[in-house]
Design a protein around this nucleic acid. Structure first.
Lengths: 246, 246
DNA sequence: CGATCGTTTGAGTTTGATCAAATGTGGTGG
DNA sequence: CCACCACATTTGATCAAACTCAAACGATCG
C-alpha cells in the first residue's frame, strides 16, 4: 500500500514490521477516477475507507443555491473517509481535481487492525487530529486573510504537505487545480483569484504553469502569507510510544 | 464527572457501567476560570486534558498583526485539548468567554482507559471527528455565507449543541458572548455584527438579551441560514458496537 | 461618580463581487 | 492539418457588502 501513508504515520510513531504489514493487508483493491469526478457524495453511507495514492481530491460542501466551498484537500497518503467506527452518512462530498488513484480498504480489516495494534489506532487518530488542525487554519485563512495572503498561504500549505510525503522536487510540486477550484477553496471569485495569482507571480514569489507550482522564495512567501507551519505537525514526535500496555 | 460528556458519548455508543466509572475516575481535579481568560496559549505543551463542565470557551488563533479568528466553541461536554497521544505544542489558544468550570483529567488515566476500553477510545475519537466536521462547516460559513446567514447559522448551531447536552430550556439557551467575540467568530467587524443581529431581531427570528438566546422559529431560522444539522451528528448511531474484540 | 466596557448609530471607503467579453488552449473530428 | 468546441484564463467596468473611523449612548463596577 501507500508508502506515503506509512511515511506520514511514522511522523507520529515508529511502526513495527507487523504493523506495517497489517496496514498493507488492509488494502483490498485499487481504484482510478478521472479528474472532476465525485468519489463520495454528501449523504452517502460512510462505509468504505479510501486512501489517496496519487492525485488531488477535495472535500466540499454545496449550499442550496449552488455556492460551493472546498473545505479540505486530499493528497497522497491522506484518507478520504476514515470513519471506520462511524457508519453515519457523509456530511460532505469528496471530488477529484486531477486523475486520482485510490486504495480501497476493508472496513473489517481496519477494525481488526485497530483492535490488535493500539499504536496504529493512535497514529490514525492522530492523522484525523491533523486534518482538524488544517480545517481550523482554513477557517482563519478564509476569515481573516486578504486575497493575496490567502493564496500565498494555500501555496505554502500544499507545497509543504506534498514535500512531507516525498512529492516535491526542489521547490516545485504539482498543483493540478483550475482557478475556479482555487476560488472555491479560498472563497473568492475566479476573477479575483486570477488577479491575485498574477500578483503573486509579479511579486516573483511563485510560478504556476502547466499545473506545476514553483515557489521561488519559501521564506518570503511564508512571510507574506503569515504562514506558520506548526498546524501541519510535520516534525516527528514519537507520541505513540508512551502507551501503558502494548 | 460530566454527565454532559457521557450523554454525548452515548450518542455514539452505549457505555457499560465500568466504562462510565473509568471515565469518571480519570478526572483528578476541577478548575474554575473567569470570563475572558486564557486556558491554553498557542505554543503550550499539550499535556493536560480539560473537559468543559460549565460555561463557554473558544479556540482561537491570532495573526501577527493582531487579527483574531475564533475557530471553535467549547461548551459543556467538550474537551479543550484531547491530545492524549500527541504531546506536541498547541497550534492554537483556548480562552474563556464566560466563567468556566473544568475537569482536569490525568493523561495517564486517559491513556490507560483507552487501552482497556476500545469502545471508549472509539467514542472519544468520534468526538474529535465531530469537532472536525464542525470546523469544516465553519469554513463554509465564513467562506460562503452572507453576514445574515452566518449569524443565523451560528445561532442554530449553538442552540442545537447546547440542547443536545441538556442545556436548553424550550427554545432558549445561554449565549454569553460579546459582539466582539461574535465578530471574531463570524469574521465580521463588530459594527456589522451589531447591525446583523438587529436584523435578525427585526425579522422576529431571535431574541438575544442578557446573554440569553431565544429562537422564535427554529425552522425559519434554519431556512434563512441554509442550516443542515447533519454535520453535528446529533442522532444516536450505535457505531461502537461492531467491534471484533472487546 | 468617573472609568471601563459593550452596544448602537452615522458617514465615507475599500475589497472583492458581478457582469461582460476577449483571449488562450487542449481535444476532437472531418 | 485545420475548423471547431469546450473550457480556462485574462481584462475591463461597475457595483455592493462589509470595513473603518468616529462618536454617542448605556450598563456595570470599584
Amino acid at each position: 500500500m501507500s508508502a506515503r501513508l506509512i511515511r506520514k504515520l511514522e511522523r507520529f510513531a515508529k511502526l513495527s514490521k507487523a504493523e506495517k504489514q497489517a496496514l498493507h493487508d488492509a488494502s483490498v483493491s485499487t481504484l482510478r477516477l478521472p479528474a472532476h469526478a465525485d468519489l463520495i457524495q454528501e449523504g452517502d453511507p460512510a462505509d468504505g475507507v479510501h486512501l489517496m495514492l496519487e492525485g488531488f481530491a477535495c472535500r466540499y460542501k454545496l449550499l442550496p443555491d449552488g455556492r460551493r466551498q472546498i473545505v479540505a484537500y486530499c493528497v497522497p497518503g491522506d484518507f478520504c473517509d476514515l470513519r471506520v467506527f462511524v457508519p453515519q452518512r457523509m456530511d460532505h462530498s469528496v471530488g477529484t481535481m486531477s486523475p486520482v488513484h485510490l486504495a480501497r480498504l476493508s472496513r473489517e480489516k481496519v477494525s481488526e487492525l485497530t483492535d490488535r495494534y493500539p499504536r496504529v489506532t493512535r497514529a490514525l487518530w492522530w492523522t484525523t487530529l491533523v486534518d482538524e488542525a488544517i480545517a481550523r487554519e482554513w477557517v482563519v485563512n478564509v476569515g481573516q486573510r486578504t486575497a493575496f495572503e490567502r493564496a500565498a498561504h494555500l501555496m505554502c500549505e500544499v507545497f509543504l504537505r506534498l514535500r512531507a510525503v516525498g512529492l516535491a522536487r526542489g521547490s516545485t510540486c504539482e498543483l493540478p487545480l483550475t482557478q475556479t477550484e482555487i476560488a472555491d477553496t479560498l472563497a473568492l471569485s475566479t476573477v479575483h483569484v486570477n488577479r491575485t495569482l498574477m500578483e503573486l507571480r509579479r511579486a516573483g514569489l511563485i510560478t504556476l504553469r502547466d499545473k506545476q507550482l514553483t515557489i521561488h522564495d519559501l521564506q518570503a512567501l511564508q512571510k507574506e502569507a503569515g504562514f506558520n507551519s506548526d498546524y501541519l505537525h510535520l516534525e516527528a514526535s514519537s507520541g505513540g510510544d508512551h502507551q501503558s500496555r502494548g
